[in-house]
């Protein structure tokens, strides 16, 4: 579990960008998506998630706005920018390359 959790945490920013590619979203929704896609096995700590939001905001990859909820507390939505889309594609490329390299390094073991 811990290796997967570490890898997920290491790719928090790309995971956020990917989920914003389809539509604008907010913190809890993004975490719900992660839970859903991993069959309720993984989710990000709030602290990790919001640190990543601030970093992405500073880099100009996402912008933020407040929703106008009629009931309950208002939500803070995030929306991906053009640079964010580029960074997302770059992150995916890097991940694919890393995955291929790790696969090769670990699976080429003839004693397995």
């Amino acid at each position: 579990m811990s290796i997967t959790a570490d890898i997920i945490r290491g790719h928090t920013e790309t995971i956020i960008l990917v989920s914003l590619m389809e539509h604008d979203s907010y913190g809890y929704q993004i975490n719900k998506d992660i839970l859903h896609k991993t069959n309720n096995r993984y989710e990000l700590k709030e602290a990790t998630l919001y640190t990543a939001f601030r970093r992405l905001e500073q880099a100009g990859y996402i912008t933020t706005y407040w929703g106008d909820e009629k009931v309950g507390a208002r939500r803070r939505y995030y929306s991906i920018t053009q640079e964010g889309r580029k960074a997302c594609e770059q992150g995916l490329r890097e991940w694919k390359e890393a995955k291929a390299v790790i696969d090769k390094l670990l699976e080429s073991n003839e004693y397995m």
Binding site: Y26, G27, Y28, Y50, G72, A73, R75
Partner: peptide, 9 residues
């Protein structure tokens, strides 16, 4: 405010 809204939901 953001943390509270998401925690409540």
């Amino acid at each position: 405010e953001e943390l509270i809204a998401n925690a409540l939901e």
